[in-house]
């Protein structure tokens, strides 16, 4: 069944697609989806076939007793499926938790309608670009300054809410250097639809160079990121930047 997956995947690629994973965590989540998808197809087909058979008066099912219908359909069928699925999902969930310390921990603060990234040595980036090393896990400690937002880079992993007064940690990992897109997933007011950001993953050496360069540039953080436009594909994001709404609220 999973053999057809690559075929379907072709139609599911995209810069924000959870089905086009670019890291081990997102890949696990995509695999979970495909398992559940094919399982659901089978169960859905079963119910529809039974409904059809009921009308065609097939002798196959007309003689089933009430107990067989209810115990078979209501217990024997769903209980093992649900126990196995929930158990597997909980084990996967355990693996995805940010146990212990990742080599790098970056602070993320959301404020309508911008993202600010703070590195361990005090570098603060607010040009809507997050630099991370590729091939290793990164912890992001996410919070918000005003209302609730949600930090989501679909190709690298799941999302975590940015809640004022709380710090939530999510661990992400990119397999290869490149540019991955992220966005705010929790409705946060008028600028919600433009609250996107870039994640630039670099080879560890290059990442160290960039951090060093940024440290020297401080506090001129308003300048564009040194790597903008370098190499990797960069889809145009016409809603970003220039017409970013600011102010309001607060």
């Amino acid at each position: 069944m999973l053999g057809a997956t690559p075929l379907l995947l072709a139609g599911c690629s995209g810069e924000l697609s959870a089905l086009d994973p670019a890291g081990p965590r997102a890949a696990n989540l995509a695999l979970l989806w495909w398992v559940m998808f094919w399982g659901s197809v089978v169960l859905f087909a079963l119910v529809m076939v039974l409904f059809g058979l009921a009308y065609l008066r097939s002798n196959l099912i007309a003689r089933l007793t009430p107990a067989q219908w209810i115990v078979g359909g209501g217990l024997v069928l769903p209980v093992p499926v649900l126990v196995l699925l929930t158990g597997a999902a909980l084990v996967l969930g355990e693996q995805l938790l940010p146990h212990g310390q990742a080599p790098l921990r970056i602070g993320v603060e959301a404020q309508r309608w911008n993202w600010t990234f703070t590195y361990p040595d005090g570098i603060v980036l607010d040009d809507q670009t997050l630099h991370i090393p590729a091939g290793q896990p990164v912890d992001l400690a996410v919070s918000a300054a005003d209302v609730i937002h949600s930090f989501w880079v679909p190709r690298l992993g799941g999302k975590i809410d940015a809640i004022p007064g709380h710090i939530n940690v999510i661990r992400l990992q990119a397999d290869r250097p490149g540019i991955y897109w992220g966005q705010c997933a929790e409705y946060c007011g008028e600028g919600h639809d433009i609250m996107q950001f870039r994640v630039e993953a670099h080879e560890p050496d290059a990442f160290a160079d960039i951090l060093a360069r940024l440290r020297d540039q401080r506090p001129a953080s308003a300048q564009p990121s040194p790597l903008r436009g370098e190499g990797a594909t960069e889809p145009p994001a016409p809603l970003k930047g220039a017409n970013r709404r600011s102010g309001g609220g607060q």
Binding site: V47, W69, I70, G73, L82
Partner: peptide, 21 residues
Amino acid sequence: SALVAIPTAVQIFAWLGTLAS
């Protein structure tokens, strides 16, 4: 959340069985 599917399934199959029989 997963378990609540079971009483739902009981009802679905009771309805299917009512139709089938």
